[in-house]
Design a binder for these strands. Structure first.
Lengths: 340, 340
DNA sequence: TTGTAGGCGTTATCAG
DNA sequence: CTGATAACGCCTACAA
């Protein structure tokens, strides 16, 4: 592999000059610039990224931590591909690399080590939950003031950077939509409590009901784990309680899809017998029968925002506010499942 | 950041010994090993990956090239998340990093440069097509004998490593399934011709028909671009030709979903008026009404296989066969859309 | 089994 | 504007 020295020789300049030209640093005579570029092209030379990283003391990579693979199915793949696309866009436009890090299920992930080993300069944590090990890992990151950002999950620690969607409001909107149609008894199938945004959804649900002067009825609140299977399982209970509710709010599309599937198998006609509002607006939302009324979440934007902020911080451009705390708006997409 | 020197001092050994212990290389006295490990832990020391890479002359990363983002939607996100999960598994188990590379739509991607800049030691190319620029880029890789692998797309060049699924056979099976039900007039909605596997599907379709003594009827062959929208668009033509066919084979689930949606809007009852067999077995396949009979493709396995082979080759373990050429089996999943 | 020392290709600082 | 030159942290013969 040809290196800087050879280019320098061919161009008849010093190695330092080659570096300057290729990095576009400092003033230089146009003629030497051209000579160097010419030589580089002739020799098929390009900067060695590893050597640069080493010299600079930075990897030039943004890490994206993904939950343990099998669990990916708990989230929609839609969620990840949108987030990743957004992150990818930011990363590319800023000339960084995107390192994918799959959480090791066995070892409690030591986030700090990613930085110590210098594999990443910053990282975004997807699918974080509120379990102890996770909390610890993330608090450590905050303590050491490392550049990182958690996606869509709240933490008490004010030093933890977060980009999230406003699920409290999103859920409020969803339930309000049903209330506005004159429906009064509205059930709720929520996802796993280890995610803070499940709690947010619950708050939004309650707020909407209370504002309408309706006392929330615990007997029509159910819990799944965001998987389709858990939606199918919930169908039995929901079917049993069908006389108690006219509609149900479900915390994500996948569960809603499972629920509808299960209900239909139990002979329930949708949306006639039960109106459904779901959450995410994934690709599948418009495929179901009836198509899902659902809350659209700007995953792509969230990914891009988190990455941009993080990378800007590295470049010291936006060094002003070091902790990121963004809450993006959701949007209700009305389709047939809510009875339109 | 603490470095090797400090650990060496604390442990009372040379720096070389520290390296040996941490890399588990060469024979060493158990006592010194322990002393070093102890010191490393005390100082919170971990190997600097960038420095290691630099010294070794390898990045330690496997690159995965993705098509330009907006186009991702042409493939199912299912496809990518499965492939990535498989690749991720292999990469993790072999201690490599996974660098995600989004194709730049503007620049013709210069794959070789990824290696020259030493960003990756090997790479897997997803969503490659048969356009000129792509061909050139890939042939260059082959010429330079760089370790890479193209996913699911054929190339004439025998030096190009490929992991694919046997779509000829998969398509044959799909059509055979319909023939076995006594159906004789079977249409075909294929995807974009710039992907070799579209041609494979066509071959399988024709072979099945010919084996059954049926003359393929060009007037019921349609072309979309693997997107749902293109399926919806095809619905008009298919509906017009409905009297000519009892069934249709569609090259992927997304188009099939669009097609069914479009047909239904035109008043067509499924599967009564038209049997459908699709391709991919994505998550959505079982969500549609009726659920899709479809050909399952082992994307996860394909990803894992490609990555493993590539990384083994780097480690010189399987240096025997340098060109990878694997063709994995597909499997027909029978559901209601084909009229069962 | 362990220590010594050269080298990897840049970056960045200082002179000139 | 350009050239020397010391880091950077680790790997790996080679020696002992």
């Amino acid at each position: 592999m040809t290196n800087r020295k050879e280019v320098a020789e061919l161009a008849g300049v010093s190695e330092a000059t080659v570096s300057r030209v290729l990095n576009g640093i400092g003033p230089m005579k146009e003629s030497t610039r051209e000579r160097v570029l010419e030589a580089a092209k002739r020799l098929n030379y390009e900067l060695n990224a590893v050597a640069s990283s080493f010299a600079r003391g930075r990897s030039g990579n943004l890490g994206v931590v993904l939950p343990y693979v099998p669990k990916v199915h708990l989230f929609s793949t839609y969620y990840f591909s949108e987030l990743l696309s957004g992150i990818g866009e930011a990363v590319r436009s800023k000339g960084y690399g995107l390192l994918l890090l799959f959480r090791d299920p066995t070892a409690t992930y030591d986030y700090v080590s990613l930085y110590r080993t210098q594999r990443v300069d910053a990282c975004i944590i997807l699918g974080a939950s509120a379990i102890e090990a996770e909390l610890e890992g993330i608090n450590r990151l905050a303590e050491e003031e490392l550049p990182f950002c958690v996606m869509d999950q709240k933490f008490d620690n004010p030093l933890v950077s977060i980009v999230a969607a406003d699920h409290e409001q999103g859920s409020y909107d969803a339930v309000k939509h049903l209330l506005d149609k004159g429906l009064r008894t509205i059930g709720f199938l929520n996802g796993s409590p280890q995610y803070s945004n499940s709690w947010d959804r619950m708050s939004g649900y309650r707020r909407a009901l209370q504002e309408a002067g309706i006392q929330p009825d615990e007997s029509i609140m159910y819990e799944g784990n965001y998987s389709r299977t858990s939606g199918i399982q919930a169908a039995k209970d929901v079917h049993r309680d069908l006389h108690k509710m006219e509609a149900i709010f479900v915390s994500n599309d996948r569960m809603a899809i499972g629920l509808m599937q299960g209900l239909r198998e139990l002979g329930c006609r949708l949306p006639e017998e039960l109106k459904v509002v779901a959450y995410d607006d994934s690709d599948a939302a418009s495929l179901t029968e009836p198509p899902l009324t659902t809350v659209k979440v700007p995953f792509y934007e969230m990914g891009r925002l988190a990455a941009e902020r993080l990378l800007d911080r590295l470049t010291d451009k936006g060094n002003t506010e070091s902790v990121i705390n963004e809450r993006l708006k959701t949007e209700l997409k009305v389709r047939k499942s809510s009875g339109n």
